[in-house]
Amino acid sequence: MIHPNDRITTPQASVILANILLGVGILTLPRLLADKMKTPDGWITVIVGGLISFGFGLIMVKLCQRFPGKTFFEYSQFIMGKWVGRALNVGIIVYFALFAAYEIRDMSEIIKYLLLEQTPKEFTILVLMCVGVYLTSGGMNPIARMLELILPFTLVIILFSFSLSLRLFELDNLRPVLGMGLGPVLKGLPETWRSFAGIETMLFFTAFMSRPEKAGKALLAGIGISVFIHVLTVITVLGGIPFEQVATLTWPTISIVRSYELTGFFLERYESLLIVVRLVQVFTGYVIYHYIVALGISQTFNKEYHRYIFIVLPVIFMIAMYPKSMNQLNELGEVIGRIFLCIICLVAPALFLITLLRKISHVPK
């Protein structure tokens, strides 16, 4: 059962979800969409992907609301039976361990490439993981309070950075709208799914909400913020750089920020702001996933939670160091994306359907 002091409010739940979702696609989504779609209609795809994600997220919320104060790890064993539920839990734990490792390794690669070229990524990963362990040891409430401080700064920096690029913006770069029909929009949807990887955390932190009946509003606000920022990112990049060029850039968002100057201002490298935002958001995702892994082991096997925060640390570190190149890291990301789709499209809807058919609405004490 969730400790009363570890509850979070509805706005805090929205902030947690928004922070997780903002850490995924800000730097790379415009390139992925431009390369896949071959049209400037990526912003439409993002909106459609957000609506679909909200639909699946709502199923997860409705499932959690049938078991107030219980996480997925607890009610899955009741719905599916002890052993099948535990097997499912182990699979979910492995997924989040992979996701945590992917996030921390991705963050270390960006730091090494753009900031600390001579620093071994092993050292960077260990330092970041130790900070994450310190934060997760306090539980969900301290994590939520930290993210409440981070999100406003993130939004201000993003809006400020993009506003400076308005002089580069050309509306003709976004035309014609739907010039090739809906085909490219649908073709780009798989790329947007990656930007909404993280909504599955609603299966867990809904249990921590002081008013779980408002989880739907928290979901809507969190996805809404993410969709707005991702749409703004795609429009800003594609409006400033033709989509044919965007498809060839590794980090097109950084490229467009680098392409302008503001003389007399105290900061010269404005892309540093976006890099910092990206790193902070990825780190928040890592913290949440590390926390869920430790919580999952604790609740699945009825063990004390805090010891597993430290036990899973070397496991996540070894997974993070396993990819030998960026190509292998990207392959790991593809695997995580496929598991994510299974969770939101198959696992959560199947469990929700079972609860409806069996008229299950609570876990017996």
Results as ranks from 00 to 15, higher is better:
Tyr289Met: 10
Ile311Met: 13
Pro314Ile: 01
Val276Gln: 11
Arg258Asp: 00
Ile297Arg: 12
Val312Thr: 11
Glu261Val: 04
Val293Lys: 03
Val234Tyr: 10
Ser298Gln: 11
Gly224Cys: 11
Val282Ser: 14
Phe265Met: 09
Glu261His: 03
Ala294Val: 08
Leu295Phe: 05
Val237Tyr: 07
Val257Gln: 06
Gly239Pro: 12
Glu268Tyr: 00
Thr253Glu: 07
Glu268Pro: 00
Ile241Pro: 04
Val315Gly: 09
Phe301Ala: 14
Val237Trp: 05
Gly240Val: 08
Gly240Cys: 11
Val276Asp: 04
Thr236Ala: 13
Tyr305Glu: 14
Leu262His: 02
Thr263Leu: 09
His290Lys: 13
Arg258Ile: 00
Ala294Met: 09
Leu262Ser: 07
Gly285His: 07
Gln299Val: 12
Val287Ala: 06
Phe283His: 12
Gly285Cys: 11
Tyr305Thr: 05
Leu219Val: 15
Tyr291Glu: 02
Ile311Thr: 11
Phe265Asp: 09
Tyr286Lys: 08
Phe310Val: 03
Pro252Asp: 05
Val246Cys: 07
Ala294Cys: 05
Phe301Leu: 15
Thr236Leu: 11
Glu271Gln: 07
Ile229Trp: 12
Tyr305Gly: 08
Val234Arg: 03
Thr253His: 10
Leu219Met: 15
Leu274Asn: 07
Gly239Phe: 14
Phe301Ile: 02
Thr233Glu: 12
Gly222Glu: 06
Leu313Val: 08
Gln245Ser: 14
Phe310Trp: 09
Arg278Gln: 13
Ile319Leu: 15
Pro252Cys: 02
Ser272Gly: 03
Ile319Val: 14
Ile275Cys: 01
Leu249Gly: 06
Phe301Cys: 12
Thr233Phe: 06
Thr250Phe: 14
Asn302Ala: 14
Lys303Cys: 04
Tyr305Val: 13
Val282Met: 14
Tyr260Gln: 04
His306Ile: 02
Gly240Trp: 04
Ile275Met: 07
Val312Asp: 02
Thr284His: 03
Leu238Phe: 10
Thr284Glu: 01
Leu262Arg: 08
Gln245Val: 11
Thr253Tyr: 02
Leu220Tyr: 15
Arg278Gly: 12
Ile292Ser: 01
Val227Tyr: 04
Ile223Gln: 13
Thr233Gln: 05
Thr284Leu: 04
Val280Trp: 01
Arg258Glu: 00
Pro314Gln: 06
Trp251Arg: 12
Ile297Ser: 14
Tyr291Cys: 06
Thr248Ile: 01
Arg307Val: 15
Val293Asp: 05
Val287Lys: 04
Ile254Trp: 06
Pro314Asn: 05
